[in-house]
Write a protein that binds this DNA or RNA. Structure first.
Length: 511
RNA sequence: GCGGAAAUAGCUCAGUGGUAGAGCAUUGGCUUCCCAAGCCGAGGGUCGCGAGUUCGAGUCUCGUUUUCCGCUCCA
């Protein structure tokens, strides 16, 4: 059922102008998508919802739009140059893929475990008189295990440092590493995967190698002092940014869930060291509330990270139940002072804050919230798309496809429909109302086909309100407003429409 | 990247070697009709791309690209 829903969603997106595959006339481009006319409206509304919730609603959070191109040393300092490189190897028999370094490390761990076992056995044998340190340094078998482990470890580190994939393969062969499940030793060559895209700034030769940013966060960190000083912020304060990031994923799949070019909505919150866990808890709650305002609570959950990234001392994902299962939608990370310290070290510039209350300098700790904009888009759409059964004109069952978007997020807020197309008075009045309403919000005018069909068309793109101009309008200056979800109509004065619809589609409803 | 499946009109799909189809959508008109699919017309596809087999390929074979599923990866 979910898989069907997912297929429905993808074709609905294409059919109604939300999302198209990139470069479709050239057979497409793997893992890249374009947002169509409806898609860009919805996406902009999502961004606005986030921006208002973060920047407008917090005195101490300010915005930033840093460049995609950044000094290459930034990615050295952030750890991306080292950590975003994975040596991978496939097992030809089991068809499974492994990280070569992890396989070798597992082998090292086994050797150390063997040594420990020897020590344990000896400890039992000798009882109280056992001198573990002495035993470890003299017992030939223990020494052999440990020495071998150390040799491999050194060779692994050296190979990783210079990117010697052939030696990693050689190690796997020499150690006779087997595939854990099948015992197969039939490995492919080890290949290097760099998750960062690179380009060059100089237009001659290959000097000036640059990376396309794999996350927006670093633009915030390197501007930390600029922003703090020019906006007179006091800790704690935050910097928010929405922007594109690029990752050369090994596999980019599941529609817009994992793309090679994607958009992040990130906020870095700078706090006094030692208070980061309080703020981490604060933002966990705050961000979950933001999601719950537009997404049913039962489809959202927290998932703590089992393995923390190199920069973090606590990390949790907000997961959403996508049609293909619970997956990460937002990450909330306590990043410590890793980034600021690292930039400070590599750049030689102090990146500290003087705290007037404590009367001392320190490098702030950072709590990060990072939502995938495209994932939020997918979340919103998967929640909204519904096929429901409603009575038709004869009172019989018919189905309608409706996007039950939060009105504030809907691409089109209001459609203006003359009841009949071939009545000049109705059409003229409808045009007049449309021309007035379009100053307030995104509107559509439609006169083609029966009005019922036009309602359904608007339902399919999630338009929350349809204003219909009928014969009564010409008599007393009232129109009907038809609500998308209930399909109920109310009759109001023409002059009231902008106010009534405006109030209902206002972002304040979900903030 | 490996394995499996798929690719025909904007969407969903039919078409088993002999002149490319349907429904919906789009568009022009009729219908005066407040919750889609009433009537008459129109437009739109070198069947993902490239080779091969064949008198002849949407259909068979190979390659390739893209998509979905599994493995893997995911800051």
């Amino acid at each position: 059922m979910s898989e069907d829903l997912f297929k429905r969603l993808v074709s609905h997106c294409k059919e109604y102008g939300f999302i198209y595959p990139s470069s479709e006339v050239y057979e497409g481009l793997n893992g890249v998508y374009d947002y169509g006319p409806m898609g860009v409206e919805l996406k902009n509304n999502i961004k606005q919802y986030w921006w208002k919730a973060m920047v407008q609603m917090h005195d101490n959070i300010v915005g930033l739009d840093s460049a995609i191109f950044m000094h290459p040393k930034i990615w050295k300092a952030s750890g991306h140059v080292d950590a975003f490189n994975d040596p991978l190897v496939d097992n030809k028999d089991s068809k499974k893929r492994f990280r070569a370094d992890v396989l070798i490390e597992t082998e090292i761990d086994k050797l150390i475990a063997k040594a420990d076992k020897e020590v344990d056995k000896a400890a039992k044998r000798f009882g109280d008189s056992f001198d573990e340190k002495m035993y470890r340094e003299t017992n030939p078998r223990v020494m052999e295990y440990l020495q071998k482990a150390e040799t491999i470890e050194k060779r692994l580190a050296a190979a990783l440092k210079v990117g010697d994939m052939a030696d990693l393969k050689a190690l796997i062969e020499e150690l006779e590493i087997t595939e854990p499940d099948t015992g197969s030793r039939n490995w492919t060559e080890v290949r290097q995967f760099n998750l960062m895209f690179s380009t060059q700034m100089s237009n001659t030769g290959d000097d000036g190698k640059l990376y396309l940013r794999p996350e927006t966060a670093q633009g915030i960190f390197v501007n930390f002092l600029n922003v703090q000083k020019t906006t007179r912020q006091k800790i704690p304060f935050g910097i928010a940014q929405i922007g594109k990031a690029f990752r050369n994923e090994i596999v980019a799949r599941q529609f817009i869930f994992r793309m090679r070019e994607f958009e992040q909505m990130e906020m870095q919150y700078f706090v006094r060291p030692g208070t980061e866990m309080e703020w981490y808890a604060y933002w966990k709650e705050k961000r979950m509330a933001w999601h719950r305002a537009v997404t049913p609570a039962e489809k959202l959950r927290f998932k703590d990270h089992d393995n923390l990234a190199h920069y973090a001392n606590a990390a949790v994902d907000v997961q959403f139940e996508f049609p293909f299962g619970f997956k990460e939608l937002e990450g909330i990370h306590s990043r410590t002072d890793f980034d600021l310290s690292s930039h400070s070290e590599l750049s030689g510039k102090k990146m500290q804050y003087f705290d007037p209350e404590l009367n001392e300098h320190y490098t702030p700790y950072v709590v990060e919230t990072s939502v995938g904009c495209d994932r939020m888009f997918l979340t919103v759409l998967s929640n909204a798309l519904i096929d429901e059964t409603v009575p038709d004109a004869k009172g019989e069952d018919s189905t309608r496809t409706v996007l039950r978007l939060a009105p504030a997020l809907a691409p089109v807020k209001c459609a203006v429909l003359p009841l009949l197309r071939n009545n000049e008075e109705l059409v003229g009045k409808a045009r007049e109302i449309y021309d007035s309403l379009k100053h307030y919000f995104q509107c559509q005018y439609d006169e083609k086909d029966a009005v019922g069909r036009r309602y359904r068309r608007q339902d399919a793109i999630g338009t929350p309100y349809c204003v219909t101009i009928d014969h009564e309008t010409l008599e007393n200056g009232t129109v009907t407003i038809r609500e998308r979800d209930s399909m109920q109509q109310e009759r109001v004065e023409i002059g009231e429409v902008a106010r009534i619809v405006g109030e209902r589609v206002d972002m304040r409803k979900i903030l």
